[in-house]
Write a protein that binds this DNA or RNA. Structure first.
Lengths: 282, 282
DNA sequence: AGCGGCGATACCTCCCCGGTATCGGACCAG
DNA sequence: CTGGTCCGATACCGGGGAGGTATCGCCGCT
């Protein structure tokens, strides 16, 4: 199977429309139709159901969509990492570390300091991204190592080391009745009238249903809370960045949040290994 | 990057010889040379060092070899799983479960029974393989789920659930002085004269250096022990398959062996999920 | 100097990819 | 049922690229 065919198929499977997929790929529709037919012939499998009401995926087609995306990511990763390795004529090409914008500020600073002090340390590019993007960045080679927070971030398919565990607090606008309490329970928070919990995007970019405002970024969320439009349950360490007008109250029965350092499993890079070692020694 | 180029590069990187690589790929040498040059141009990276004393990998080249193998595995997996999904017009295509020949006999039987009793269970093909092959089989799509033994098998890049933990015993020929002991320590075993521990192959198929006999299979090993040529430290459950002439003595300070069920992280197959659920309920 | 091994180059052929034009079936409006 | 439109499939053509053969250039060995 050639990557060209795979890219074409993924485009069609996502659009469920040959014409639009072809446009998006920058080719005409007929060669796209032919490429998909040829792929189906070679695999001996019907991938798409062409009905008069548009195109639908067969069972085999949805398998290929899932597996094919992973394969294309792996190819992108190979290409990117090779390019980066080539840019550094001497030794390691520098490491890209990715973490959610607005989180892990202190831990990250300590980690970078500790690693920089090691002999043979290379440049670490810090990349900040939105919620749920890290796994993708690691898989397609744009990043080499990430700081994640379980149980929020999925660590499926990644190697991890635990760095830090902490409880959670509920962040509320100052003056809210609950701010007087020493600690609260999940049930207290779930029932808050007029202060819905925000909705984070899933890995595929869609949002769960619900009443709360959709949120991509940390700071965005804190602002909403200050405006009295939402509340949120977040790790204790947000206390460090609470502005005036925001109050944090511990939530007794919220799940513990574990900060982990994660990397793709076949990453045998010396620099990543050293970074992980530095992190576990913090 | 096209898979053809990637396959060509991996062949050359493994052979470190254009002529032999071309022969192995079934093409002539000149097109292979050109393909590699074109790949290097497109990546903007020197991958191979052509010296008069043959070919060597550059830093970027070894990155691409490692990442490229993973990407090719992912493509093979996509192709195999799609083909298998297409063969089953109704529902799921059957699951391939892989485990080491000679191990986990009882646990496996119970798992298959428990899963078969579930509603909606599909056919489970059991595949037996040698030491260290399971991870590869999962990655390139020849298998969907595996029974592994930590810490011997690497579970890097796989999702796992723990099923069973057990201590280890040393297996000795009957009549050996140590067989009178109720239990022994690692240091007792390491010092055994004339009964070296066997060497298992690494993931890449090579053997570590040492005195012991190289071993691929369980039964092979037990036979060597009965002949008085080796001893081995193995999980307790081997007791069930000890023939006459073999004795097992618990090793107090050997690491615990954990049997886990493992699957590739993006495997969203309903059948694999049900199998894992059945396994954790055992 | 002569020779053998090995990768690069030159040059040719043919296939396959992509483009344009057109077809054919499904659905819709009247 | 007829004309229109939407959409994927088919027909056909042209160019680029993949692979083949022959040969070169370089290095090391004797």
């Amino acid at each position: 199977m050639e990557t060209r065919e795979l890219r074409y198929f993924v485009a069609v499977a996502e659009e469920l429309h040959f014409g639009r997929a072809a446009q998006q790929l920058g080719i005409a529709q007929p060669p796209l139709s032919r490429a998909i037919q040829q792929l189906e012939r070679r695999l001996g499998a019907a991938l798409l159901e062409r009905g008069s009401r548009g195109v639908t995926l067969t069972e085999a087609g949805s398998v290929l969509l899932r597996e094919g995306r992973a394969a294309l990511d792996a190819i992108d990763a190979a290409e990117r990492r090779t390019r980066r390795a080539a840019l550094a004529p001497t030794g390691q090409p520098g490491v890209v570390l990715v973490t959610k914008a607005g989180a892990t500020g202190e831990l990250l600073a300590k980690l970078l300091d500790a690693y920089a002090a090691e002999p043979g340390a290379v440049a670490v590019d810090v990349m900040l991204c939105g919620i749920g993007e890290q796994e993708r960045l690691l898989r397609d080679g744009r990043a080499d190592v990430a700081l994640l927070h379980r149980p929020f971030d999925s660590t499926a398919g990644l190697d991890t080391e635990e760095l830090h565990a902490e409880g959670q607090v509920v962040v509320l606008p100052a003056g809210h009745p609950l701010t007087g309490r020493a600690r609260v329970r999940m049930s207290d928070v779930a029932a808050l009238p007029g202060l819905p919990l925000p909705r984070w995007p899933h890995a595929d970019g869609t949002f769960p249903d619900g009443a709360g405002p959709p949120v991509h970024h940390h700071t965005q969320l804190l602002q909403l809370i200050a405006l009295g439009r939402a509340s949120a349950i977040l790790p204790e360490s947000v206390r460090a960045e609470l502005r005036d007008g925001l109050v944090a109250v511990p939530v007794a029965d919220a799940p513990t949040v574990t900060t982990v350092i994660a990397w793709p499993p076949h990453s045998r890079s010396r620099a990543v290994a050293a970074l992980v070692r530095a992190a576990t020694r913090l």
